[in-house]
Design a protein around this nucleic acid. Sequence first.
DNA 1: AACATAAGGATCGTTCAACAATTCGACAAG
DNA 2: CTTGTCGAATTGTTGAACGATCCTTATGTT
Lengths: 228, 228
Amino acid sequence: MDNAVAELAHDRDRLGRSSTAERVADILRERIAQGLFAPGQRLSEEAIGAALGVSRNTLREAFRLLGHERLLEHRLNRGVFVRVLSAQDVADVYRVRRVIEGAAVRHAAAAPPEAFAPLREAVADAVRAAERGGWQDVGTANIRFHQALAALNGSPRLDEAMRQLLAELRLVFHVMENPRAFHEPFVSRNLELVELLEAGRTAEAGAALERYLDDAEELLLRAYAPRP
Amino acid sequence: MDNAVAELAHDRDRLGRSSTAERVADILRERIAQGLFAPGQRLSEEAIGAALGVSRNTLREAFRLLGHERLLEHRLNRGVFVRVLSAQDVADVYRVRRVIEGAAVRHAAAAPPEAFAPLREAVADAVRAAERGGWQDVGTANIRFHQALAALNGSPRLDEAMRQLLAELRLVFHVMENPRAFHEPFVSRNLELVELLEAGRTAEAGAALERYLDDAEELLLRAYAPRP
DNA sequence: AACATAAGGATCGTTCAACAATTCGACAAG
DNA sequence: CTTGTCGAATTGTTGAACGATCCTTATGTT
């Protein structure tokens, strides 16, 4: 009985966690992730505030949240804009990915077998999406794969950092035509990765990951030409 | 001449970057770093807003900023509190430090000799501060050392992440008595680290770093007993 | 025609006052 | 000692207001 009460502590954070500003931030984050707000687009306080039925003050709190997540760019006296990543930004994102995901692969050696289940699932989702031509969904599944890979570190802070990095990357995906070319080739390579990991061949997995990230970065940078 | 103009670009971000909310956040961040606001303490909107002469709305924007940096904790309808790190938080901070600083050491092999100058300087500052018994300053210099170490990654995002991590750690330092015991022993180990790095013995440096972080974490966790 | 300048409108930055919602502690009742 | 109720204090959110700043357009000058 005392036990049942103690378990409630797990759900405690689900109680208070909903202010209007945060819910607005959630909505905007989702819209940006879906590409409905294009990079570079200005987000008018008045227009969005009216559309969502919240005051400008509340909306500005939400903007601060997303600005800190690098999804919005705050220019003084000019408003907030959906972030436009430069080529250097993309390079830096991949630099950080190498660090975080590389560490995850090294951690994988000590991980229990069931730790790889989320990776398997993400690959399976990607395969299914690819079969029916949903390239956008393939991209989403691939992102989930790498999120799950980073989770092998077992660190909430790295999970959060990875979440943010991948959200930034999504901004790049949306300004590019031909999503298939950017997502399809990597499904099988993700599968290769998880199989190497499960087999305990972490050194090879690390090398494969390096090649993966090098190729993805190059492919991305080659096709990515933001207005200078 | 064209060169001098080009250099101005470095300071560009310092121009527009001054909204009241951000300046308020800077002030509060500094106060927290100095320990003038103790962990767990509640920051009243009305009191601080009046003291700083800014409106509640502006102050709330600043709070959102610092909340996202994990320095403040926002509890719905209860206000913002200076963050109290749990033992798990401390462990997680060190987990991330191992990842980021470990990668930095690996990067150091390809770094030019002058890249280690900031590390040398930080150690020198720590030594000077230790000689005159300024243990608080020793801690600050040590923090600068590891910030500079992380900078070897050459990644703005990792720099920012490290900045945040070390700011969190400062929260822990402030709730502990006897700062000398936590900072003095590590000065010489930092010196050892930079010398190994300059000598190109990166593998040994990596091992030394691991020991460093293990010891620091254990020392910290042993003495750190936040209210449960 | 090219450039500098000035006026105007739009939007942001910030403040202020107000009210609803929520929390917390005190106090009374069982 | 537990439970219910009340009230003060604080936060959450709104709406309006005004100055500051930026962008565009119109105007004037060389």
